[in-house]
């Protein structure tokens, strides 16, 4: 079932919408949650919360891209859970975090806190100015948390080539954020 049909089920408030969502996107969402949380129970909990958030979203405003919205919800909920984990004990961060710290380090003080929405806007603008290939590599690596090998396989290229692309994009992004006024 395609995305439009699933969205139609959500609009009809049919419970089949959740089942179809699980059948079509459940595995990808679970993989993303597991990569971020590295815990199956947490991942399953995040996934269920994401389905519920998607169900409720159709009451307010129908998302344009159902699958992308679901991924973003899973990621947001996973990051939120990571934050809660970090507050209690120091958990091992997801792999891409260290790489992203090269671009924009985590703030040490409250004054250095960066508005996530503002940063997301700058990130959107930067990525839209990049090539489709660069966008794909960057988002697969830092949004979906794919490994370099997986990205290389998907693109049909070598891992070093993907690493070079990532480094170039990160370097450009760092320069872009600096120009945007972010303390990099």
């Amino acid at each position: 079932m395609n995305e439009a049909a699933i969205a139609a089920l959500y609009r009809a408030r049919s419970e089949d919408a959740i089942r179809e969502t699980e059948e079509n996107y459940g595995e990808a969402c679970r993989r993303l949650a597991l990569r971020l949380l590295q815990n199956e129970e947490d991942a399953e909990e995040v996934l269920n919360d994401a389905y519920l958030a998607l169900w409720n979203s159709f009451e307010r405003e129908e998302p344009k891209h159902l699958k992308a919205y679901l991924f973003k919800t899973v990621r947001y909920l996973a990051c939120d859970k990571l934050k809660k984990r970090a507050a209690g004990k120091r958990a091992a961060p997801p792999i891409p975090l260290e790489e992203l710290a090269e671009i924009l380090p985590a703030p040490d003080t409250a004054e250095q806190q960066v508005d996530a929405q503002e940063l997301a806007g700058a990130l959107d603008r930067f990525l839209k100015g990049e090539s489709e290939r660069n966008r794909y590599v960057f988002l697969r690596r830092y949004f979906h948390c794919d490994s370099v090998g997986e990205i290389a396989a998907a693109l049909g290229t070598s891992e070093p080539a993907v690493s070079v692309m990532l480094n170039r994009v990160k370097k450009k992004m760092k320069e872009y954020l600096r120009k945007e006024g972010f303390s990099v």
Binding site: K72, R75, Y76, A106, A116, L119
Partner: peptide
């Protein structure tokens, strides 16, 4: 948590 990593969720 890296703010950039968090901001990724709002792309």
């Amino acid at each position: 948590m890296n703010p950039l990593f968090e901001a990724m969720s709002h792309v």
